[in-house]
Design a protein around this nucleic acid. Structure first.
Lengths: 145, 145
DNA sequence: CCTTGACTTCGAGTCGACTCGAAGGCGTAC
DNA sequence: GTACGCCTTCGAGTCGACTCGAAGTCAAGG
């Protein structure tokens, strides 16, 4: 079998490079049935990925980075295989995940507000020279600084 | 020993309620030396938390929810015990964490953009009736929908 | 033919932060 | 005095998603 593949198809090393997912992870994803279409094999039994699968992996990657579980991705992939009839359920899954992502954003933003507040407090402290009032309680600034 | 404590001090059940952290978690945090000041005990050996400790736990909670590790929180708590001399290092820790939170926000936002894009696509699909063109590839819309 | 290197399968190990449950102590209410 | 409920310590278990490593296969290059 050829050492290079006709362009839209590639082996695991390139798929790994393209997606930022390790080869181990790519195999794991196949085993977990996360692909919409089966991963093909060449004569040597090596995996061959299509461009479409790379795009799908990039989507998976975004879903993962926003906290979607492999369970949910698997379900979504199943629905993809189900064709147009499953569009409604796919939509629902995405809507649900969208809400989770918004919740996470809000949570992070709330934390960021606290962090910034403390940073500002410390910046002021440090500007005041090596002041010894590090333990004061200003308004809205209960001690755990 | 009294069944209720003088207001600013409370036992684990109330501390749990106030902070949203389970009693198990509160004990675990003490064991992990996450508190700035030692958790006191009453005559029966029960933990007694101060209002200040509740405030600190609320801060820890925000740090945790934004992904700060217990290791980093422990370090921060140590620095708190070190007094004013450690303000600079505390500032640095917060700055570093701030950046991580901003990175997470950006990552989530990028994922959200993809999700919204797909949601809009599906919404359109569904509006067009049960169209059978679910597999089309529009511009900027490579197939893994 | 032999080496090289990219690949294969398989099973086991890792990670942090909880989370749980068993066994027991203490003080109050009845 | 005994039942109750809240607390204690301790050690073990859980979770998902990797991550690793051993042992083996295959094709091409020299």
């Amino acid at each position: 079998m050829p050492t290079t593949l006709t362009p839209p198809r590639m082996r695991i090393a390139e798929a790994s490079e393209r997606t930022g997912l390790s080869g181990h992870t790519l195999r794991y994803y196949e085993q977990e049935r996360l692909f919409v279409n089966p991963v093909e094999r060449d004569g040597a039994g090596h995996r061959v990925f299509s461009e479409e699968q790379i795009q799908w992996l990039l989507v998976c990657s975004k879903m993962r980075s926003s906290g979607m579980s492999l369970d949910h991705i698997r379900r979504y992939a199943e629905l993809m295989r189900g064709g147009p009839a499953t569009v409604g359920e796919r939509y629902e899954i995405l809507r649900e995940h969208e809400q989770k992502v918004r919740d996470q954003l809000a949570e992070l933003q709330a934390a960021l507000d606290v962090i910034e507040h403390k940073i500002a407090f410390y910046a002021e402290q440090m500007a005041e020279g090596t002041a010894d009032q590090a333990w004061r309680n200003g308004p809205n600034c209960s001690s755990p600084i």
